[in-house]
Design a protein around this nucleic acid. Structure first.
Length: 188
DNA sequence: GCAAGGATATCG
DNA sequence: GATATCCTTGCA
């Protein structure tokens, strides 16, 4: 639905911009591997390593259209919130269940933090082979959306800190007008 | 409009 | 070691 491309160390918006570190080491490895990082202290974001060994390029999965398993996505998110809360709060599970019940199916994975959450992924899943048919989360060939849908390309979101041209290069791609795409309405 | 939230890279 | 910053979300 919605992805962003990140190049290697030359891309000042990429986690690889400081070179190889403990966090981003997997980016420098082979393609098809998951790189999941924590952003803003509470949300995990899923990336797919995309280049040959050493290039450190990746694709951030910013949004997905849920096709099945929406109830489980809601249940998992309720369970996570409840588990993360230190003090026991008997009303928390109920209020969270109600809150997620109001979230439309098409909005359950709209946004990078939500897309990773929809698959129950956090940083510990970094290194998973997304091209292995035996992996619990994997990439598979889907419907041929390219044939009928227009693709919109915009600047990447949340990378204002990067120097030009990296802050404005149109490397965010989404299905135009799709309701499961995140970001400002003008960028859909 | 903005607070929550914790790891990370950098600087002292 | 301390701290500014971060590829965001959900509520006021």
């Amino acid at each position: 639905m919605e992805v962003e491309a990140y190049a290697g160390p030359e891309d000042r918006a990429s986690h690889a911009r400081f070179g190889r570190t403990a966090r981003n080491a997997v980016m420098f490895g082979p393609p098809g591997i998951a790189y999941v990082y924590l952003v803003y202290g509470m949300y995990d974001c899923l990336n797919v390593i995309s280049g040959p060994v050493g290039t450190a390029s990746a694709v951030l999965i910013r949004a997905i259209e849920p096709i099945e398993g929406m109830d489980r996505m809601r249940d998992d998110r309720v369970a996570r919130v409840v588990a993360r809360r230190r003090l026991a709060d008997p009303t928390l599970e109920r209020t969270e269940t109600q809150r997620l019940g109001r979230v439309a199916d098409h909005a359950l994975a709209r946004g990078p933090g939500l897309a990773a959450a929809a698959f129950g992924l956090d940083r510990t899943w970094t290194g998973m082979d997304l091209c292995d048919a035996g992996s619990p989360v994997r990439l598979e060939r889907g419907a041929e959306i390219m044939a009928t849908d227009a693709i919109v390309a915009t600047a990447r979101i949340g990378v204002d800190y990067a120097r030009e041209p990296w802050a404005t290069v149109p490397w965010r791609f989404a299905i135009a007008g799709h309701r499961s795409v995140s970001g400002p309405r003008a960028a859909r």
